[in-house]
Design a binder for these strands. Sequence first.
DNA 1: TCTGGGGTCCTAGGACCC
DNA 2: TCTGGGGTCCTAGGACCC
Length: 423
Amino acid sequence: MRNIYALIDCDNFYVSCERVFRPDLIGKPVVVLSNNDGCIVSRSNEAKNLGIQMGTPYFKAEEVIKKNRVSVFSSNYALYSDISSRVVEILKMFSPNIEVYSIDEAFITLNLTNSNFTKYGKEIRERILKDVGIPTTVGIAYTKTLTKIATKIGKKNIEYGGVLSLLNEKDDDMYLEMVDVEDIWGVGRQYSKWLREMGIDNAKDLKYANRQVIRHHMTVQGLRTVLELNGIDCIPLDSRRVLKKSITSSKSFGIKTDSLEDIKKALAIDVAQAGEKLREQGSVAGTLTVFLLSNPFKTPCYSNSISIKLPYRVSDTPNLIKYSLIGLGKIFKSGYIYKKCGVVLSDISTVNDVQLDLFNSSFINDFNIKNKAMITMDRINRKWGRDTIKIGSMGIENTLKMKQDMISNRYTTDWNNLLVVNI
DNA sequence: TCTGGGGTCCTAGGACCC
DNA sequence: TCTGGGGTCCTAGGACCC
């Protein structure tokens, strides 16, 4: 029996989240910026129509933005992730099989007893819009890659009313022809350049391409994409809550700096954040990588990284900070203006798998004590806000704090930020 | 002046083993 | 002195995703 997939994809998600609390902005151009107010990462349809491109640096679009009175927001991840989880809760009512693919997309499988799939898709859409206030597009098909194609077309053509089903396969080729090769899930910049050179311009061309040639040039993943375009299900729903295999935390500095002392503090803050994520999933890390970059848009530039194999797996912030500062000391070179640093934790396993040190009997106690202290610290910080308790090396004030000049309130996750209504 | 952050999977090649 | 074939593990780098 064939699976039937639906992809529920929130429209212009970050912008839509901002509009939930600013309904006056519906119908008006709005953009949301990346961290540090660097690039434009979400655009309302009105902003798209002004020619504002995804990923454009803010300063390059500033003129168009001012001229057309586009509303601009810094990104507010506390708000977006809370709204995202509300959408997921609703989807769970429609299907027990769900894969939360990203902050604004989820796949579900549909039961064959729902005979009218398009109608069911519309019900899902309307429920999310009514209960959470977020508009979505729903794509329905026999493979996940085809649901991606369906939402892509559904978003561009309002006549589908936000739901497009490709279950009537004789029409597939007509739809596939509408989608450029660059826009296919699994085809990025490098592959699309090569495909274009091969005369493969759209999804229909790729569907009928020579499979051996594709396999050779684009590995098994490329082959899977071709098969999926043919309606052959190769990428199953992945509903496991998987443990992350690596955890990164890094940030560009709000102010560029050549000061090792400032960078040490910024790195300690990143490490603390990574450590918290590590403990949240009950894991410990065996390897830690520190990296440091000067401004890549300026010459001369310098970047370096160093990986440190930890003597034993840890998850406590003081140890992680200790080793990362050793690493930083080894790669820091004076005389450059730095703009970013960060840490990657890898070689991750669960706490239960930790190899204890036979020759160091005090180690077990040490491990347990530090962990209890960390768990308590995490709990307090979750309840009372980030950095209520922190490690000394993070400093009192983050001198390189990122820019977020236009951030909205944390309306749904902070009592002090509740929406105020004047009557 | 101003250019984000956080992930996954696959492959090739080297080291090492029997 | 000559020399084979097959396997595993690890790492770096390249591709992709949101």
